[in-house]
Every structure is written in C-alpha cells, then in structure tokens.
Amino acid sequence: MKVLVTIKRVIDYHVKVRVKADQSEVDLANVKMAANPFCDIAVEEAVRMKEKGWVSEIVAVSVGPAAAQEQLRAALALGADRAVLVQSAEVAEPLTVARLLAALCEREQPGLVLLGKQSIDTDNNQVGQMLAALKGWPQGTFASRIELEGDELLVTREVDGGLQTLALALPAVVTTDLRLNEPRYASLPNIMKAKQKPLETLTPDDLGITPRAHSRVLRVTPPPVRKAGIKVADVAELVDKLKHEAKVI
C-alpha cells in the first residue's frame, strides 16, 4: 500500500508570535519555521508502518511556499521515499488544500492518507475531514493508535471522555493526535541521502485546481492581556484571598 503523508511548514511552536502593527496578520518575517508537530507525528507513523511491512511507498506532500522543500527534505531524511510540493505563495484555505490533495490522490492512488489533526498556526482542524469527504473515504480523526488487521485499519481515536475505536475500510484518511507516537530524529547519513531523493514541484494548475476564497481575514489582533497578579506568602494568605478578595471559594 502507498501512503500519502502531508506536511505543513508553520512557525516553530516555541516561538511567541507577534501581531503586525497594521493588524493584517501575524509577523512571520525572520521567525523560525518548522514542520507542524502533528505532521511530524504523521511522518513517523508512516515510517513505522513501512517498517512493519504494511506500506510499500511513502510520498510526502506539502502545499505551501518554495521554502517548504526544507520540511519535505526532512521527511525524506526520516524515511519518506519521495516528495511532492504543491507550490502556492499564498496560504491556501483548508478546502483548497483538501481539493489539491484529492487531485493528488487521483494521480497517486494511495491506500491511506495520513495528516496531522491540526496545524498550530491556523488551528483549523479541517483538512483531513474535508479530504475524506471529497473522496467519499472513511475518516479516523485524532488517532492515538493505528493497527492494520486484514484489509481494515483499526484506529483508536481520542474523543472527549475517553477513547473510541473504529474499523476503516481502505482507502481511508487518518489524522494524528499527539500520543500516536514519538517522532525520531534524522541521522546525518540519512539527511545526506535525502538530498538525492526525488522532490517534484507542482502548481495548483498542474492538478487542475483553481483556489477559491471562502473567507477573508478582516484583522488579526493580540489577545487581551491579563493583569499581573500578586505572589502570596503562604497557603493561609492564598485561601484568604480566594475567599474574601476573589470570592471564588
């Protein structure tokens, strides 16, 4: 089975973001970028599936700027066989990304598409579900465990209140939660080898997709700032403040 695994280039998750003064967007100039952490988990899972012999080929895919090649090369160093960058200067909306991925699925005919459950920049948590809808495939979102049993994929999902297990017929779409696995690091020899692996660049046009706008960001503002609090000396003072000042207990 072939697996498509998606990677988004986003601001590094350690970075404290700043909003531009003109409120147009978050300032990404000279900020450290990285692969979205949930996408790292998807790559790791694809590699583990290949190591178990469930998967014959891993194709890493990104929809993003030319610089996203860096994140695709990192996926190749971790064990992806080849990569496809659908180059788009603007940040594509989730439905556009899903349409591009659906078109790529037509071409590649994967048995499984693995995506992160959400990207840590836009926090949408939409693309995997949208892709599954466009393809008419079953979906296993927020996966914390994936097993192949016969011709079905058993996906344990993190849901409010606990865990739920579904059996999905293939082809299917699965989105990863944090606890699915612990991503490995690439070794230097593998990083060198990844430079020789194929990385194809396409445009939305090549896939026959015209991006459409479904929404417009009117402004981006910093969140309200909490007032600085006080330090209390001991438990007695804390309890007193909570009872008589904050009146919460």
Partner: peptide, 17 residues
C-alpha cells in the same frame, strides 16, 4: 472571531460562502 496560533492572536474572519 476566532483564536489562532494557540490563542496568541485573535482573527476576525468574514465568511464569503
């Protein structure tokens, strides 16, 4: 209105659909 970047920015979004 919705939070983005783990709530470190707040976006006001107009839906065109």
């Amino acid at each position: 209105v919705r939070p983005i970047y783990a709530g470190n920015a707040i976006a006001t979004v107009q839906s065109l659909d």
